[in-house]
């Protein structure tokens, strides 16, 4: 399987995605309430930032996996990765803005960026909490990554790992054959160096996202099922489970359209709109920096090339005052973060 970009697919163009989100596939049948209107009804429009605390950095689209739901359209054929120069610009902003207490590193598989370890070390020198969004299989994909659990431990990195389900079939359907077995091996390696154990400060959190056109079930009950099954079947421990909704962009949008589920899925998201979740969306406390240094309100806006509504869009020209006074850019995909209990990079929000 290749990325949409490598296949020269129409949806590799973010403008095409936005056109479908705004107009649907058949304009006569598509009458979803605009997200902006929902926010207005909830007294939340324009959506304004709260105190920013999470500095999320997408260090590249390169990945060892090609997952069917990937909102980044990541894969081995994607070569866009953050340079050390851009990382240095991020570090300069972090040094000047102590309010960003958490640095959340994502990708692709962020570990494949050759400057990944250097960047983690530099961020830790600034005394910030580091989260790495690890797809797990990268750890066992090549011997040069076998020591990642030890590296994470040395730098007290919080590991947030994708594991769509606690059973092989459902995981492999979404992420590819063999992914479940490799993920289990990687989790056992992380447990082996102290991650995820009950009293351990080495945080290991898992991410569930639905393998299909439906919303996640309740996070608390699902976490208990994951905990019981993974321990019973594989002796694996973890701290928390984050249940994340798939947003209708990129490869998941392609899946929805190909399977004929797009309109129904969007309607399901709209019907499940929750004002309490809308008030707590992650973009209100997050800055998302793309591989080439541009500023976005979240990783999803980043993939749709929706940059922050500030005069200067690049990290090299970062203006904290402008960031605090901006309005967050929203579109129809934002319904994915406000459905039900809400969804964020940290799971449910209410």
């Amino acid at each position: 399987m290749k990325s949409l970009k490598a296949n020269a697919h129409l949806l590799a163009d973010s403008q095409q995605q936005l056109s479908i989100l705004e107009n649907g596939t058949d304009t006569n049948m598509y009458a979803l309430v605009p997200f902006q209107q929902k926010l207005e009804e909830s007294g939340l429009y324009p959506l304004l930032p709260l105190t920013p605390s999470v500095f999320q950095v997408n260090v590249g689209k390169m990945c060892n996996q090609v997952c069917r739901h990937c909102h980044v359209d990541a894969g081995p054929d994607r070569k866009e990765i953050m340079t050390r120069q851009t990382m240095e610009q991020c570090l300069q902003v972090l040094a000047q803005q102590p309010g960003y207490t958490i640095v959340d590193i994502t990708g692709g598989a962020p570990e494949m960026n050759p400057d990944f370890r250097w960047f983690v070390e530099q961020v830790r020198l600034l005394n910030r909490h580091v989260i790495v969004r690890c797809n797990l299989t990268i750890i066992v994909s090549n011997k040069k990554y076998f020591d990642l659990p030890v590296f994470f431990r040395e730098h007290v990195v919080e590991v947030v790992s994708s594991l769509p389900f606690y059973q092989k079939d459902r995981t492999d359907r979404q992420r590819g054959d063999g992914v479940f077995d490799d993920s289990i091996k990687a989790l056992q390696m992380l447990n082996g160096v102290g991650y995820g154990l009950e009293e351990s400060p080495l945080r290991l959190n898992l991410v569930y996202n639905p393998a299909g056109a439906f919303l996640p079930p309740g996070q608390a009950a699902l976490e208990q099922e994951f905990r019981t099954a993974l321990y019973k079947d594989f002796g694996i421990s973890f701290h928390s489970l984050y249940a994340i909704t798939n947003l209708p962009i990129s490869r998941f949008l392609d899946y929805l359209l190909e399977s004929g589920n797009y309109e129904k899925y969007m309607q399901k998201l709209v019907n499940a709109y929750n004002p309490a979740a809308a008030a707590n969306v992650m973009c209100r406390t997050t800055l998302s920096v793309s591989w080439n240094g541009y500023l976005h309100d979240c990783d999803f806006n980043q993939m749709l090339d929706l940059r922050c509504a500030v005069p200067q869009h690049h990290i090299a020209d970062y203006d904290h005052s402008a960031m605090l006074n901006r309005s967050i850019v929203v579109n129809q995909h934002c319904y994915g973060c406000t459905a039900g209990a809400g969804s964020s990079c940290g799971g449910a929000v209410v």
Partner: peptide, 10 residues
């Protein structure tokens, strides 16, 4: 059918 599948039954 949808609800039970969503709740993790295969």
């Amino acid at each position: 059918s949808a609800d039970a599948f969503e709740k993790g039954w295969n």
